[in-house]
Amino acid sequence: MKRLSILLIALLLLVACAGPKEGLEEVVGNDQQKAVEDNKSSKQGKTDGAVEDNDNNGEEDKGFEFEANGVVIAMNAEMAPIIEKLGDPMEYFEADSCAFEGKERMYYYSGFEIHTYEKEEIDHVQSVVFNDDSVSTKEGISLYSDFSSVIDAYGEEYTLTEGLYIYERGKSQIKFLVEDDEIVSIEYVAIVE
């Protein structure tokens, strides 16, 4: 009897003291209404300060950055300051996340689009996709360039899957999709933990 009581108390203590496992907050969180309300006031995030990787991990972890009209767009950076500098997009699309709070947003600018994700109810850059050859990477690669120019600019440390060449730096990737030696898609992607 005593042993059972100890077992029960130990079990209750284990449950009470255990820390949360990462990555399931959206499932276990039950304060969704508050999240929605907080979302309204904080969605736009900071509107001042530099447009930079908010993880601030220093130069060596600095990932790939795209530059448009003098505005540097780093992956995982907060979106609000970027919009402030780039101006309103030509088109905008938002997609509800199935079931969970949070939206995937797409901002269309001339020649490229920015996709965002929500983290702690603030929009962050998820990816930048090139739509035509009017824009290029900082290293001078644009759509329809020869693949050899990618090797010249980024080197040979890539992973290759079905014509998709992926380079990784810091918490970002740049992906080149190659067909018949021509680049048909360029995308910067944030590595989100």
Partner: peptide, 16 residues
């Protein structure tokens, strides 16, 4: 599921 959701003890609401 107790093994997965045990950490919700401090988030419990009237709904639970």
């Amino acid at each position: 599921p107790l093994l997965r959701y045990h950490s919700r003890w401090n988030e419990l609401s009237w709904e639970d």
